[in-house]
Design a protein around this nucleic acid. Structure first.
Lengths: 141, 141
DNA sequence: GAGCAATAATTGTTGACGTCAATAGTTGTT
DNA sequence: AACAACTATTGACGTCAACAATTATTGCTC
């Protein structure tokens, strides 16, 4: 029997858990969780997105998006607007408060990554990042 | 503002999720879930462990360990033995069936890893694995 | 232009996961 | 002997993700 961490897949699972916990720890005080934060960050790059786009690009189930956007609306960080050309769709957009919130937590991601990748020097981090991106390529935005 | 996918930490989180799901898919037929599998793999390296060791090393809550070991006992893959020096503790150890099961599912991990790391050639996989190991070094079993 | 398949958002359900609080039994200390 | 600390356990609660089903709307097609 090989060692516990002989499998790269298992390692990824364990490290992913740790990473998610770290993110949520950093975000805890702000009242949002990791998935809300992912939505906010995506909205910041897109100037408004349909919910189905959020679902596809973030890899969350459409039904999950509903609740996340609900929460963000309650917090005043995002709002739903009717889509001009399709009355089925809603366009989700950041509010001013949402942008301000993102500016305030700008470094959260960096801090998590720094704490997580502490044992790695910058070159290693770059290598790791590009490898992960290649794995994530299909299916993950 | 960049998308969260630019953060290595978030990528790890997403890929860890996907990896865990793949594991659960492969394990489904065997009647155990990923966390059982993690316990079994740990036991295989340790020749018997206290439940609190399992909790600490795997990062699962002590109350979660109880249920997992219960299940493994029912399946005949592990057993609780009294700790000789402390009647509060139980030593959890693999049974012969447990070892046989692990041998049988040895390839599950490989299949998951193969599917997950499909875009990477062998050299890249080796690089990724060693990087992940270095990150996992502290705190992870 | 009426009928029908496909799509967007939503609701509800289920299961795996994770955390927390409380308890009983045991140990070690003072 | 009294008390704090520790081990396993139980139970409650909330998070997270996958799936099926529903409603409203759109586009196709015939």
């Amino acid at each position: 029997m090989r060692g516990l961490h002989a499998d790269t897949g298992y390692l990824l699972y364990r490290l992913g858990l740790r990473s998610g916990q770290l993110f949520n720890t950093f975000l805890q005080e702000s009242g949002v969780r990791l998935r809300h934060y992912a939505v906010l960050r995506f909205l910041a790059t897109s100037e408004g997105a349909l919910q189905r786009e959020l679902s596809a690009r973030l890899g969350y189930d459409p039904s999950a998006i509903v609740g996340l956007v609900d929460d963000l609306e309650k917090l005043g960080f995002a709002e739903r607007r009717p889509a001009p050309d399709d009355r089925r769709s809603r366009i989700v957009a950041l509010t001013q408060d949402g942008r301000a919130f993102l500016r305030g937590t700008d470094e959260a991601g960096l801090r998590v990554t720094n704490e997580l990748l502490d044992p790695l020097d910058p070159a290693d981090r770059e290598t790791l990042h590009s490898l992960l991106r290649r794995i994530a390529q299909d299916g993950l935005a």
